[in-house]
Amino acid sequence: MARTILWRLLYALPIAFGVSLVCFMLVYIAPGDPLQTVLPPDANAEMIEIVKRAYGFDKPLPVQFAQWLWRAAHGDFGLSVATRRPVSLEVGGALANTMVLAVFAVPLSFAVGAGLGTLAGCAPPGRLGRTLDRLVTGTAVMGVSVPNYWLGLVLVIVFAVELSWLPASGMGMGGSDGFSVLRWADLHYLVLPVVTLALVPVGIIARSTRAAVLEVRGQDFVTTLRAKGLTELAVVRHVLKNAAPGMLAVMGLQFGYLMGGSILVEPVFAWPGSGTLLGRAIVNRDVPVLQGAILSLALIFVATNLAVDLLQAAMDPRVRRA
């Protein structure tokens, strides 16, 4: 097991390196000269040279990358072009806000998605089972196909505007800094964005769980289990344990997405998370923020995948020794 962990960690390193290289290259890949945003339009050659040197653009690319990476490793991505605040603060705050949503959306979508998928996959034969399966599959397809920002707007119209049960947007009276998940009033602000964010993962997880469960149920050993006289519940437990590694991979991906925040959903609820931050940075051509945010999100993905790999190895004896 220790060797597996070590290997997976070693795999993650080149991926993380590649991701940071792409983030760094963002400045050059993005259309337009990054200097133009800093320099006045009528800057002369001497001035351009000075600014270039100040930003380190005069050095060869590998050196620039090494310096950038060194600073990034210490959490220093420079200042936001738009707000002049350190990128680390901007990104850190936004990530924290997104995580508040994710902390609720992840268990909600995993539980509902896996539950629905298992129900559909284990539906008994006959009319009742078929109806149940269709109902769940239909719900799942809808979850995947309905644009979630649109659903967010509809939820706002219904529950905030028409019924006035829940607040439409924001993080409450205290704003982002005064928000606490321990305060009942603040929790109200979570309901609509969390439900909206959970929609897509619920659909995806339900569908893949159903497929995984059906696949496992078709295997020979399930007949053996029945032939042993096990109850249907015990059989389902076996099936789920077999389906778990596959489900985990899908869940890991969804976990990454939820942690990354939604560039479309967060603005609908004026939620100051990483999705909103990214959207604003794109509009403002705020390259340092983009670099910082994308690198952080990408690293979250890498870490999630690593965790999924390790969990899978812990669950599946065949992976463990491979």
Partner: peptide, 26 residues
Amino acid sequence: ALRALRGGTAAMVFQEPMTALDPVYT
């Protein structure tokens, strides 16, 4: 009663020992 029969009164041995056992249980 069916569960008592299966594996209790009568038990079955399958053709494929490779697939007849659950791979994730000892």
